[in-house]
Simulated scan of single mutants.
Amino acid sequence: MPWPLPAVFIEFEQYEVHQLSAWRREADIPVRLHIVTRAQTYTAGANDKRIDAALQYFDLIDRVNAAMQALSGEGFGAFQLTASATNHNHGELMENIERWLTHAIDATADRPRQAVTLSTMEIIDRV
């Protein structure tokens, strides 16, 4: 099914989870963004008016990068760019893959802590 362009598809890579205390867990979560646009063809000549449209592709990547760098929230830190692969040409489509990494802490299973105490009387009654 076709989709409107430009488009950004999100791919979550596999990640390892590490158990923490108090029913919490953490992970470094890698995410790939597939930025897809229509391919722009132009000649190398300076008079080709299509070069501006072709270079807008990089402006889009810059806008996506600015949005990702500002993204953080409850339970996960700011995203960091770790890799970029530009100009994967798929016929009439062009794809850029940006790989980002964030550190997340999952506290959804967190429970209130309860103090456990035994009174002196209970210990004597058991002996």
Score class of each variant (00 low, 15 high):
1 M>H: 13
2 P>H: 11
3 W>L: 12
4 P>K: 12
4 P>H: 14
6 P>D: 13
6 P>S: 13
7 A>G: 04
7 A>F: 00
8 V>F: 08
10 I>Q: 06
10 I>V: 13
10 I>G: 01
11 E>M: 01
11 E>C: 02
11 E>D: 02
13 E>R: 12
13 E>V: 01
13 E>L: 09
14 Q>T: 02
14 Q>H: 03
15 Y>L: 08
15 Y>A: 05
16 E>I: 13
17 V>Q: 15
18 H>T: 15
21 S>A: 06
21 S>P: 09
21 S>R: 03
23 W>H: 06
24 R>I: 01
25 R>P: 03
25 R>Y: 03
26 E>T: 10
26 E>F: 01
26 E>L: 01
27 A>L: 07
27 A>T: 08
28 D>R: 01
28 D>N: 06
28 D>S: 04
30 P>M: 00
31 V>Q: 09
32 R>Y: 12
34 H>K: 05
35 I>V: 03
35 I>F: 03
35 I>S: 00
36 V>Q: 02
37 T>I: 15
37 T>L: 14
37 T>Y: 07
38 R>S: 11
38 R>K: 12
39 A>E: 14
43 T>I: 03
44 A>E: 03
45 G>Q: 11
45 G>R: 11
46 A>E: 11
46 A>D: 14
47 N>F: 04
47 N>V: 02
48 D>H: 09
48 D>F: 07
48 D>S: 04
49 K>N: 14
49 K>W: 14
49 K>Y: 15
50 R>Q: 15
51 I>Y: 02
54 A>E: 05
54 A>F: 09
55 L>A: 07
56 Q>Y: 10
58 F>E: 09
58 F>D: 03
59 D>N: 14
61 I>C: 06
61 I>L: 01
63 R>G: 14
65 N>H: 04
69 Q>I: 04
69 Q>C: 02
71 L>P: 03
71 L>M: 12
73 G>Q: 11
73 G>D: 11
75 G>E: 10
75 G>F: 07
75 G>C: 08
76 F>A: 12
76 F>I: 10
78 A>S: 13
80 Q>Y: 05
80 Q>L: 02
81 L>Q: 09
82 T>K: 15
83 A>L: 06
84 S>E: 02
85 A>M: 09
86 T>I: 08
89 N>T: 14
91 G>E: 00
91 G>S: 10
93 L>I: 00
93 L>E: 03
93 L>V: 01
96 N>Y: 12
97 I>C: 09
98 E>C: 11
98 E>R: 00
100 W>T: 10
101 L>C: 04
102 T>S: 04
102 T>G: 02
102 T>V: 07
103 H>G: 11
104 A>H: 05
104 A>M: 00
104 A>E: 04
104 A>S: 10
105 I>E: 15
106 D>W: 02
106 D>N: 14
106 D>P: 04
107 A>M: 07
108 T>H: 10
108 T>C: 02
110 D>C: 11
110 D>R: 12
111 R>F: 07
112 P>D: 05
112 P>R: 02
112 P>G: 05
113 R>P: 10
114 Q>H: 06
114 Q>I: 01
114 Q>K: 01
115 A>V: 13
116 V>M: 04
117 T>R: 00
118 L>C: 13
118 L>M: 14
119 S>I: 10
120 T>E: 11
121 M>T: 08
122 E>Q: 12
123 I>A: 15
124 I>R: 08
124 I>E: 15
124 I>H: 06
125 D>S: 08
125 D>C: 07
126 R>C: 07
126 R>F: 11
127 V>T: 14
